[in-house]
Nucleic acid binder design. Sequence first.
DNA 1: CATGAATGAGTATTCATTCAT
DNA 2: CATGAATGAATACTCATTCAT
Lengths: 203, 203, 203, 203
Amino acid sequence: MSSASVDKHAAILDAAYELFGSGGFYETKMSEVAERAGIAKGTVYLYFKSKEELFMAVTRRDCEGFLEQLEGKLRACSAMTDKLSVIAEHHLFYYYERKQHTKLFFRAPNNNPELVAYMAQFMEAYMQAVVKVLLEGGATEPELMAQSYIGILDRLKMDILFDPEFAEADADKRAKFAARLFITGALGSLDSALGDFPAEAES
Amino acid sequence: MSSASVDKHAAILDAAYELFGSGGFYETKMSEVAERAGIAKGTVYLYFKSKEELFMAVTRRDCEGFLEQLEGKLRACSAMTDKLSVIAEHHLFYYYERKQHTKLFFRAPNNNPELVAYMAQFMEAYMQAVVKVLLEGGATEPELMAQSYIGILDRLKMDILFDPEFAEADADKRAKFAARLFITGALGSLDSALGDFPAEAES
Amino acid sequence: MSSASVDKHAAILDAAYELFGSGGFYETKMSEVAERAGIAKGTVYLYFKSKEELFMAVTRRDCEGFLEQLEGKLRACSAMTDKLSVIAEHHLFYYYERKQHTKLFFRAPNNNPELVAYMAQFMEAYMQAVVKVLLEGGATEPELMAQSYIGILDRLKMDILFDPEFAEADADKRAKFAARLFITGALGSLDSALGDFPAEAES
Amino acid sequence: MSSASVDKHAAILDAAYELFGSGGFYETKMSEVAERAGIAKGTVYLYFKSKEELFMAVTRRDCEGFLEQLEGKLRACSAMTDKLSVIAEHHLFYYYERKQHTKLFFRAPNNNPELVAYMAQFMEAYMQAVVKVLLEGGATEPELMAQSYIGILDRLKMDILFDPEFAEADADKRAKFAARLFITGALGSLDSALGDFPAEAES
DNA sequence: CATGAATGAGTATTCATTCAT
DNA sequence: CATGAATGAATACTCATTCAT
């Protein structure tokens, strides 16, 4: 692939990321992607076979970037609590930086098995990264624990995406909150009424 | 509204719920909705101004049902721990019963401010319902706590939606897991390495 | 099918006949067909599933008309020689009246198995009509004879299609010529040099 | 034109003959022609100005070959009856050998006046070749006679093109049949009912 | 001469919505 | 109220042709 080709390939991905991200799959036109990338309509098809394939490529690049950055940050610290904090910060800041592009995940093409499969694989990889951290602490049910942690982070990110007032400091605060809640549970913040929580089962 | 009208109104909503739920917004045709509802295409427009409005109505009915049922179940118990369990069970079983209709939430129409606003309002109402429970326990940061709990439940429901093997017993197990994790935190399941977690780190 | 529907169905076929006939399949646009039929583009698709299906319908209507008219004319006479003349006149005049629409046969869509099959069936039916006439005269090899006769007529029609000067009288003359040549052979018009033609085989 | 150029020119014509012949004009892509000729897409345009011109060149080469071979074979015999047999055999075997390439004639580009003119000129030349033979026998109406003969041959070749079972022996049989029918007419194979055919009816 | 990356005109088809009956 | 025939805007994708290298 020549240097010019790389440039164009990347330019198309960038343009598509912007448009798919802010408008969703169905409301983004290939002609707009071409225009924003500064090339002709037909040229897009030299690099991506179809609109769906382009969407897949955009999604894949974004997800891979998410995981790669996460792995890098995790390697930089050793204590499990630090790692959990790193995960929270990464999750929230990643979306904080992309708050304009929420549609990439919410407005995907329907009924595309390849995309569904890829997203499932991405979620699995993300979960396993968290599982790996939890196993260092000898967690039981690490997969459910990992999913729960990701769930907390994913919900706490929502205001980031939709609240225009949201600031970086808020993201940071939420990251810390998430990590602490996950570790210590709500017990710490709740009064003694909880003291009698049946630890084994709520039957 | 006459009784026949009520019937038709409901028939359309039922048909649309099935189709939007299993095919998503963009891949569902108004003509299909009419056909499944057993009426003529034009008649749909006597009851709903547009496809988007119909989607809104379907979503609203579903969300309202979710909240109403939840309120009912919460009124039936008094201890906060019971209520948290009830929330978890409700969340997971509600989706368990609707596992065929995942597209209703994942494949919504793009760029519809009204829908976005409604979903935000629904989330707020759901969150407040949880907040109300948490406040009985005197929680600090009850909103973030509520969101986190919902986040856990929402993530744990994912496998329910996408794993065809998922059984009712699994849903039950996950509900119990979620409630306990939320209350006691991961600490209980992790070894002493966590003992030195800086509980006040976010200060 | 309501009367209005019949009208529209026929109007589309008429418009398509004109355009496919003069421009061929590939160079005729569905929007042109709609415009000439005085309806909206989408309406064409209420009556014909696709451009290819419309082309098929036009072709079928034309071929069926050809055969039906021929059968009618053949029933009106009894002597075999009369029938052969009738065939010749029908073939040449049919194309004479349609000289503006040659493309219907020459510019058909490529690789459409259904169309190929239909044309083969039409040719078979036409041939059998001629065979039936020839069998009254006790012909041997009636199928090859019929094909040959049709071949003569088809070639003699070519100038009709392409020579703008061609007049009705010329068509009539050619019809008579064809019938006589077919019956008596070239021998009558050629001098004695042919006398020694080896009637059984040219080996 | 250098030797390499000649090679390439011929390679393109060969490739185009294969593809136009089996797929027709509209469904053959210039990129496929280039690929099959083993050269780059742009190079085709160094030798042929456009797709239509290439199609013309392919057609012309094929038609010229047809006529040249025919002239050669005709020079090799002297009796008129022999020559008529030679024409029949040539026509049928020429297509027999090219049965894979039927689309070259049936799927020509629409509305190309140059091609229409060339085909008319080819037909004229072919007809004149037959006329020349017939004139040796002192035929009246030699042009109509020639066209008729060609018409018989052209129709009898149809099964050759479309019937996969067709064998060389069948082609030979048809050639003999055509020559004899043309010379002696159907009269020989029909019973006395034809005896009263009004030979001068067209006067 | 040869290349092949880039171009952009061109078109069949769908489907939400309307409105005459 | 109900119908469904008619509408027409909207868009992905192809491929002949060009031209900088």
